[in-house]
Design a protein around this nucleic acid. Sequence first.
DNA 1: AACTTGACGAGGG
DNA 2: CCCCTCGCCAAGT
Length: 122
Amino acid sequence: MTVVNDKTYRERVYEIVRRVPAGKVMTYGQIALILGEGYTARTVGYCMHAADEGVPWQRVINSQGKCSTGKMTMPVNLQQSILESEGVVFSGSGKCDLAMYQWHPEGYEPEPDDQTKLFGTD
DNA sequence: AACTTGACGAGGG
DNA sequence: CCCCTCGCCAAGT
């Protein structure tokens, strides 16, 4: 099964991230599972650090419900601040309740049999 | 072409 | 809760 990639590896990640509404978040691993094949949480994170404008990178956090941007290009507290301004509430240890804020995109399922069912034919 | 570097995640201590 | 180890895979050197 050969999947023809019009978009780059990274853009597939961005397509999903762009759909995350304000006040909601997704995790790196969640996105990796959705894309399946060749994608891991690690590579999703790698794609995010180079996200273009228009990609709400701040809405992607780790599976513990915390921001992981520290020491790279963006301070953790800044990412958290942005999310808080979007309505996400963090507890004292900088953690948010994923059960409450994690967004589950509709139409996307882990390892789909037929990729044409994802968004219909674009 | 080989080696290193991560915005990760699960598991164990 | 904090720390470490290992597996994962694209990108940059």
